[in-house]
Every structure is written in structure tokens, then in C-alpha cells.
Design a protein around this nucleic acid. Structure first.
Length: 583
DNA sequence: CGACCTACGTA
DNA sequence: CGTACGTAGGTCGT
């Protein structure tokens, strides 16, 4: 069995709790756990395979952790998510997907282990002589954890190869003449899953002292004990409460009390959200003080000393868990603030001595993606420009701000504001692109599943899969499918998911290419932020890294889009601190 | 203790 | 100008 398009032999790797197994053309070996890294390197050099894994996290965390470069993979879990939609993708789900079995019947792991007991040992002892599959053809729950001997590991590896074959056939049925595009999606999404492990391993470089200073500016000094912390909190609150004489005991963290307080000074609002209060900033000094307090409070609670201590390692790297796709359209997610670090803290994100960041963000990615997905030749023409809105404005006979609002309104669906006339002109100027958006909207209203450009399924109406309960402790919150909501909300969701999800695919294809290109330079991708990449690289290699990042965009975009008629642009700069680059 | 709400950070 | 995500603190009910 080989990967036809790339010519690489397909080798399954299963890593269990006590050993590993690799099987494929030219290899059929049990590996001791301590030897996995070395044998992985040997087998990679000897065979140049595409490694087939149930999931990158399960099979490759140790390999990546050892600093080994993992080149080509086929991640069965990520592929399952592409083909079938949703987020649940345990080996059980993969097998069910491949065999056409009902996802709802996938065996789920036993309930929570009891406090103070090691549930794994208990389960392994009890499940020692079980078969791999149930009578119904499903993979037994926790099959990977229970695979403690070589024969069982081999069985799982062979099954993985069968699933890969089955997924490839499914891609062929789905893709027709575009099967190669879907296969490339699998490759880059699989690479993204490996990249996630690298991001977790490497972390984001932080200037700890700068971070402490920035936190101190908002949260005050480090508290020595609980009483000290309370005193500092009261001190912070006083900046607001001094504007409310007689109500110094009020709890600013309680929105109901804050709303009442605002009413007492004549500010009557339905809620106390920042955008609601913003117009009242000058009405009463209390409002301004409150909004400033909220900013500080955010840093004090979410990005304060505790955050620094818990998530920034002794090597001054900020680490969190990464996932290659969320449950909706397929963007990457990250924990511990890596994806929502407040701008005021960005000066603390600083390259290590002798290093710099190459920072690059994609410009106007979503309308450019729309040009690809819709194959609208006129709209593609507009992407030739560095600023896509300029030619659109010219074509509409409108000014640039109007053209921009019209395009955004078309893509995201506006509820308020006045894009009306320009929107009608847009429909006339780019009927193909607008037609795609209208069709996506209608699909959402009708609960019809849609697919992104790369082939990821966006589902509707299905019962939300049972996450949680130990099945997938790290599953992103929320249910991936939109079964509820109004017609309009589903329509907007579908329209957005096609654009946002396709953009995420292009981004990951770019990131995977960059990752490969900067490795020989000693570079690492240290942050992925939906349309922005931060690459950490030795100073002397900055120039080469910039070229690699930009060259990667050209090649990744051409391959992903299947055309060079749509242009993608990146704004790239070399900086010491993240904040030096204006996004 | 968890579910839910409010609020807000990022893209 | 919509969508998505992660985090924390509050309340309320068990």
C-alpha cells in the first residue's frame, strides 16, 4: 500500500501504553516504548513513509516531544472530521465512519474513575481477553489504552491501514474530479495536527520581566497572601467607587449591582457591556472609570500573575493545548490565552536573545477565499490588487469604505447599517460570488450540510454528539452542529462557515509549508492566529525566513486554490517584540 | 459541585 | 459586521 499521489508507502504507527507497532510495506515491527523515537527516525529514513495514525496526539506526542521532525502523516481523526463533520473522532468514531455504522452507537469508555483509584489498571485487567470489535462491528472503547501486547497493537495498526483505505475511497466518492484537492486537505490538516504538538512543545517566547511590569500596571503588585490580595483588589475598585459616594460596598463584579449603580447616576442601560456603556463615557465619570477598571480587571483575573506562573515555563515559554480544528468551521484553537492575549500584553511576547520573530498576516483573506470558492472570474480579477476593495469600489462606482462595507455585509450578513444600495450593485457586479453566498445561506436555512472548498463537512440538524463524560475531556466547548437557532442564524452560520472554514484550510496549508521551509533555518512556528503566523528564528536567518514565509504563501495558495488567478497577500515584518508589528 | 449567565479578549 | 473560540466571576439549584 502506498500513497499514490505522493508515492510514499503508508505505514501505520500505533503507540500504546506499553509499546508501539509499525506496519506497512517493508515494515512489520514491535517497538519498545523507550525505542520509539530512534526507530521512528530509522524507519522514516529507510522508507520515507506517510505515517498513518489514529490521531497525532496519541501516536506522535512522544516523537515530536523528542524534537524529531515528522514529515508526512495521515491523521485518521482529522480526516474523519473532514469527511463526516463534527468534532468527535475517537478511533471508535473513525471505525464507525469507515464502516457506515451509526455514530450514536460508538461504544463509550466506562464512566469516570473513582477518586483515589487508577481506573486504567482496573479496565486493563478486566478487558485482557476481549476482541477488538464488538458484535455490532464497532471498535471497543479505549481500544488503544487496552492494547498492551504486540499482537493487539498490530491488530490496531492493520485496522488503521484499512481505515485509511476506506477514507481514501470516501474522498474519491466525494471529490470526483476534485479528489486530489480533498486529499491535499487531508495532508495539510494532518500536518496541522502535528504542528499543534510542536506548538505545545515549543511554546511562545515571553519576556517575563516585561510581562510582570505590564501586569503590575493593571493588577498592582504581586500579593503576598490572601489578605494582601483582597487589599489590592479594594484599592483597584476604589478608582471606580470614589465616583459613587455612599455605595463603597458595592460589588463591581456583579453586573446586576453595576447596572443599579449606573441607574443611580442617571445611566439607564439594558446591560453593562462595554459597547453599550461606551456612548456614556462622557455622561458621568463613573462610566469611564468603570470601563477602565474592566480592562485592568481582565488582566488581573485572566492574564495576571497566576496565569504567568501556571502557563509560562522556567524556559520563559507560554504553553497551552492546541487543536487543529474547532467543532464548527475548522479553525485552530488554543488554550491558556494564546489566542486572545490582550493587545496591551503583546510587548511581553519577545524573541529569545539572538532571535527575532518573522510575523506575517494574510491580508483580506476572506474575500480572496470567496473568489476561490465561488470561482467568480470578475471577483478574482479584484484580488490582483494589494487592496481588493479598491477595484471593487471602482467597479461599483462607490468609494472604498462603501465597497468594503458592502463586501463584508454580503459575506457576513448585516442586520443593521446601510449597505443597501451598494449591496445591490455588488449583486450585479459579481453575480457568481454573490450567488454562492446566497446558496450557502439557503442551505443553512434548510439545514442542508455544506462543504468547505477543501471538503470539510459542515453539518446541521443532527443531534449534538455526546462530548464530555470522559469520552473527550479536552473537547472544545459547545456542540459542533447548529440544530437550533432561527433560520437567519443558521443561514449566516452556513455562509460564514464556508468562508471562514475555507480560509482556515488555506491558512493551515500555508502554515504546514512554512513549518517545513523554516526548519532548516532553525526556525519554529510559535503562534498561529487564524490569519497570522509568528515564526521564531535565529537573527541571521531573518531574511531567509521572510523569503520562506512569502514563498510558502505563493506555493500553498496556488496548490490550495488550484489556480493562480486568485492572489493572496501577506504583510510580513521582522520584529523583536510582537507589539512592534502593527497588525 | 455543575449549569448557566454575563462579560470580554482575539481573529 | 457577522461568525468562531477560551477564560473568569457571578448566581442559582442540586
Amino acid at each position: 500500500m502506498t500513497d499514490k499521489a505522493s508515492g510514499a508507502p503508508l505505514v501505520a504507527l500505533v503507540v500504546g501504553p506499553q509499546g508501539a507497532y509499525a506496519v506497512g510495506p517493508g515494515i512489520d515491527e514491535a517497538w519498545a516504548l523507550a525505542e520509539v523515537g530512534r526507530r521512528f527516525v530509522d524507519a522514516s529514513a529507510r522508507l520515507g513513509p506517510r505515517w498513518v495514525v489514529w490521531s497525532s496526539a496519541a501516536a506522535l506526542r512522544g516523537v515530536v516531544g523528542a524534537g524529531i521532525d515528522v514529515a508526512r502523516t495521515w491523521d485518521l481523526a482529522e480526516t474523519h472530521r473532514i469527511i463526516h463533520g463534527g468534532w468527535a473522532a475517537t478511533p471508535g468514531h473513525v471505525v464507525a465512519g469507515c464502516r457506515g455504522l451509526d455514530e450514536a452507537d460508538v461504544p463509550r469508555p466506562r464512566a469516570q474513575r473513582l477518586h483515589g483509584f487508577d481506573g486504567d489498571l482496573f479496565d486493563v485487567a478486566e478487558g485482557g481477553d476481549e476482541t477488538l470489535l464488538t458484535a455490532g462491528g464497532h471498535l471497543r472503547a479505549d481500544a488503544l489504552l487496552r492494547a498492551t501486547d504486540a499482537p493487539r497493537l498490530r491488530e490496531l495498526a492493520v485496522l488503521a491501514l484499512e481505515c485509511q483505505t476506506s477514507q481514501l475511497e470516501a474522498l474519491g466518492r466525494l471529490g470526483g474530479e476534485h479528489v486530489a484537492r480533498l486529499e491535499r486537505t487531508v495532508w495539510s490538516e494532518s500536518a496541522a495536527a502535528v504542528l499543534c504538538l510542536e506548538l505545545e512543545r515549543d511554546g511562545l517566547p515571553v519576556d517575563r520581566l516585561a510581562a510582570e511590569d505590564l501586569i503590575a500596571a493593571s493588577a498592582g503588585p504581586r500579593a503576598r497572601d490572601e489578605g494582601d490580595a483582597a487589599r489590592i483588589r479594594v484599592e483597584r475598585d476604589r478608582a471606580v467607587l470614589r465616583h459613587a459616594p455612599g455605595r463603597e460596598r458595592l460589588d463591581l463584579r456583579n453586573p446586576a449591582q453595576v447596572r443599579e449603580l449606573l441607574a443611580s447616576v442617571g445611566v439607564d442601560v439594558p446591560n453593562t457591556r462595554a459597547w453599550v456603556l461606551e456612548p456614556y463615557r462622557l455622561t458621568h465619570p463613573l462610566v469611564d472609570a468603570l470601563l477602565r477598571w474592566r480592562k485592568d480587571e481582565r488582566i488581573a483575573t485572566t492574564y495576571g500573575y497566576r496565569w504567568l506562573d501556571e502557563h509560562v515555563g522556567v524556559d520563559d515559554r507560554l504553553r497551552g493545548a492546541w487543536t487543529a480544528c474547532d467543532g464548527a468551521a475548522g479553525r485552530m484553537t488554543a488554550q491558556n490565552g494564546l489566542h486572545n492575549l490582550p493587545a496591551p500584553l503583546r510587548p511581553a511576547i519577545c524573541a529569545a536573545p539572538g532571535h527575532v520573530f518573522v510575523r506575517a498576516d494574510l491580508g483580506q483573506i476572506e474575500p480572496r477565499v470567496l473568489a476561490v470558492v465561488s470561482a467568480d472570474r470578475a471577483f478574482a480579477e479584484a484580488t490582483r490588487s494589494d487592496d481588493l476593495y479598491a477595484p471593487v469600489a471602482a467597479k461599483l462606482g462607490a468609494d472604498r469604505p462603501t465597497a468594503k462595507i458592502a463586501v463584508l455585509a454580503a459575506m457576513y450578513g448585516q442586520r443593521s447599517g446601510a449597505a443597501g444600495e451598494a449591496l445591490k450593485d455588488l449583486e450585479r457586479a459579481y453575480p457568481v460570488a454573490m450567488g454562492l453566498l446566497d446558496r450557502a445561506y439557503d442551505d443553512g436555512v434548510a439545514r442542508r450540510a455544506v462543504r468547505t472548498w477543501g471538503g470539510r463537512l459542515i453539518r446541521f440538524g443532527a443531534a449534538p454528539p455526546q462530548l464530555g463524560e470522559g469520552a473527550e475531556p479536552d473537547a472544545p466547548a459547545g456542540s459542533p452542529e447548529r440544530s437550533a437557532g432561527t433560520d437567519g442564524s443558521r443561514g449566516r452560520y452556513a455562509r460564514n462557515a464556508i468562508i471562514q472554514g475555507s480560509a482556515a484550510e488555506l491558512f493551515k496549508a500555508w502554515a504546514a509549508t512554512v513549518r517545513h521551509a523554516v526548519r532548516p533555518l532553525g526556525g519554529q512556528i510559535v503562534l498561529c492566529l487564524h490569519d497570522e503566523l509568528l515564526v521564531h528564528v535565529p537573527e541571521q536567518q531573518a531574511h531567509a525566513a521572510v523569503a520562506a514565509v512569502e514563498g510558502s504563501l505563493t506555493s500553498a495558495a496556488r496548490t490550495w486554490a488550484g489556480t493562480d488567478q486568485v492572489r493572496f497577500v501577506a504583510d510580513t515584518s521582522v520584529v523583536r517584540r510582537w507589539s512592534e508589528a502593527k497588525p
